[in-house]
Design a protein around this nucleic acid. Structure first.
Lengths: 165, 165
DNA sequence: ATCTGCAAGTTATAGTATAACGTTGCTTGA
DNA sequence: TCAAGCAACGTTATACTATAACTTGCAGAT
């Protein structure tokens, strides 16, 4: 069977491209929506994108301080709230952490594979999952507003290296 | 189209039956597994089952105090941890809250419909959702350990009463 | 009777998030 | 240009959620 690897699972990918692409998309999207991507907001987005592992809000504060900004919690939470509203970052409730959205602008849901070993989170774009959820909700007479799907398990890399059987 | 109402969406159902059934099942399951359902654990389970709305850990403390127990946070968190391990309650990460499991003992996942109006949470047992998630994960080379699906939206009752269109 | 080990009590603190109010700085219209 | 209005950010304080670490109590086994 062929396995389609998510970019997050390619250890040697050029991550600068991920970051730059995310920042560019954010600029474009904010401009299109008449929103201001201020320096702090851009910085927070960049920091969230430092890796494919979700970052806690408090993990971001030191870097914000180093960049010369106030680094009290409300600063980072405000920026994160804005970025969430714009669909640029997602919050992973099961981790109390945030991760950059890999395809902002699309009308999509929050579906994630989270590796319990390395912590990497990969966003999914599966119509099959969305559809099965919508169908099931409809059967129950329930109208869906937001799907939060957080799947915990082992990513391909950690299955390979840490095969404890 | 016929809509199959979840028990949680039937406002006039005999909720004592829900509670008693949950407690009976808990007794049986703990006995079968050689686990002790102590008075505090049983009390916490009962309190969680007071309604079909998820309860925060700190919401339970006053009632625990009234029952004559110590009511410091570790007490309730320990009980909740035990109940989770036994599959008797689920934690809803998006709400930081806990809800009784409607079918303990089954090998099942945590799939919930959460009403954004009334707060009621209904547990799903959908093979279709599980299957689509497993398929999608497998395609990515990911091995699933735990599924957390929390769907936010409007329950049938709140759609009826609060039709804001 | 004593030992052992799990459960619960107790105190303290870590970790996550927001309220409330003040200040700054942009923009927009007279 | 200037003042008014507004959004973003600074700042302080605090609320809410969860766990660490140590002590005490209790039940079953030897």
């Amino acid at each position: 069977m062929s396995v389609q690897k998510n970019i997050a699972y390619q250890p040697d990918h050029d991550h600068n491209r991920c970051i730059n692409s995310a920042l560019q998309q954010a600029h474009d999207l904010c401009k299109a929506n008449g929103q201001r991507l201020t320096r702090i907001r851009e910085l927070v987005l960049k920091l969230v994108w430092q890796s494919h592992k979700p970052m806690g809000a408090y993990d971001l504060l030191p870097a914000i301080a180093e960049a010369g900004f106030n680094s009290a919690p409300p600063t980072v939470y405000r920026a994160l709230e804005f970025l969430q509203e714009q669909g640029l970052v997602h919050r992973l409730a099961s981790l109390n952490a945030f991760i950059g959205c890999t395809h902002p602008g699309h009308n999509h849901q929050g579906h994630f594979l989270i590796c319990s070993i390395c912590g990497t989170a990969a966003e999914l774009e599966s119509n099959a999952i969305s559809q099965s959820i919508n169908d099931c909700a409809e059967q129950a007479g329930f109208t869906v507003e937001q799907q939060n799907v957080e799947i915990l398990g082992r990513c391909p890399n950690c299955l390979q290296t840490d095969d404890t059987h």
